[in-house]
């Protein structure tokens, strides 16, 4: 478990990080909490030539109220998301989902920004922020731009971020009392979800994010549309696998994943409707 050789540079500010990645180009990577990147490097599945450490950018670790949204700094650790009073009050679904990421060691090191940039469809937070209609703030050499979560995930481990852009903030709309549920189905508590569902529901509106049901996190908009046109939870949930493209692995066949998506979506909507 020894990574291939790499060079290391530490950024003291977001601007410096962006400048460093500009200098080192395609083969360089930002290092945040290291809980996605370093395992890949140890297995030599990733072999970046330069790591740009953004671990000291503590000014990107915050959770604050900004009108109708809660703004979360990209370097905020999962444990801080999990334990935030502000999130518990305004976006409880996200705080709860963060408590399901990996194990306590992972949650103390891993960051919300790192998880979203890694954009693993089997991770909990990409699908959850997608369901919540979040917006991601990216900073590049020419300033910042906002990317809607729905436009962010472009393919397997691929995002809309440019090579020289750094994710700096995640902006999540307040849930305003919506009912919610997070259903994570796995074999061991520390594992990625075999299938997961993050859902909220308020009056006629809903948002359902599916974990590990394709190469990208998926917004089950068909389910939401069925609900808003009056379908029963059972009937709406039956549509969960539509538009998904799950794969088979040691833990699940495609058929089983699709079945789980239906069952877990139904359970999530039942729970979200009762709270």
């Amino acid at each position: 478990m020894i990574p291939a050789a790499f060079d290391y540079a530490r950024a003291e500010s977001a601007e410096e990080a962006i400048s460093l990645i500009g200098q080192h180009g395609d083969e360089s990577k930002f290092l945040a909490g290291g809980h996605s990147l370093l395992p890949l490097m140890k297995l030599r599945l990733a072999q970046p030539t330069v790591l740009i450490d953004i671990g000291r950018l503590t000014d990107l670790s915050y959770i604050r109220e900004d009108g109708d949204v809660i703004a979360i700094g990209a370097m905020t650790r999962h444990m801080d998301v999990e334990n935030s009073d502000l999130l518990a009050q305004h976006v409880p679904l996200l705080a709860h989902a963060a408590s399901h990421v990996g194990d306590p060691q992972v949650r103390h090191r891993g960051t919300i920004g790192g998880s979203i940039c890694h954009s693993d469809s089997a991770s909990d937070l990409p699908a959850t922020t997608l369901a919540l209609g979040a917006t991601y703030v990216a900073q590049g050499p020419n300033g910042t731009r906002e990317i809607a979560a729905g436009d962010f995930y472009q393919g397997f481990l691929t995002t809309a971020l440019a090579a020289d852009e750094l994710l700096t903030e995640i902006r999540v709309p307040k849930m305003n009392g919506a009912g919610w549920s997070f259903q994570k189905f796995n074999r061991r508590a520390q594992d990625w979800a075999i299938v997961g569902v993050a859902a909220w529901r308020r009056n006629g509106d809903s948002g359902i994010g599916l974990v590990n049901m394709g190469s990208v996190p998926i917004l089950a908009s068909g389910v939401s549309e069925a609900l808003s046109s009056g379908a029963s939870i059972e009937d709406a949930a039956a549509q969960a696998p539509e538009g998904c493209d799950p794969t088979a692995d040691l833990n699940a066949s495609i058929e089983y994943r699709e079945h789980l998506a239906r069952v877990l979506t139904r359970r999530a909507l039942e729970e979200a409707s009762s709270s």
Binding site: D103, R188, A189, Q190, D191, L250
Partner: peptide
């Protein structure tokens, strides 16, 4: 061998 890591070979942890 498809289970040569602890992500695939499921040794239960304390939480399980």
């Amino acid at each position: 061998l498809q289970t040569s890591g602890l992500a695939e070979y499921l040794v239960p942890a304390a939480s399980d």
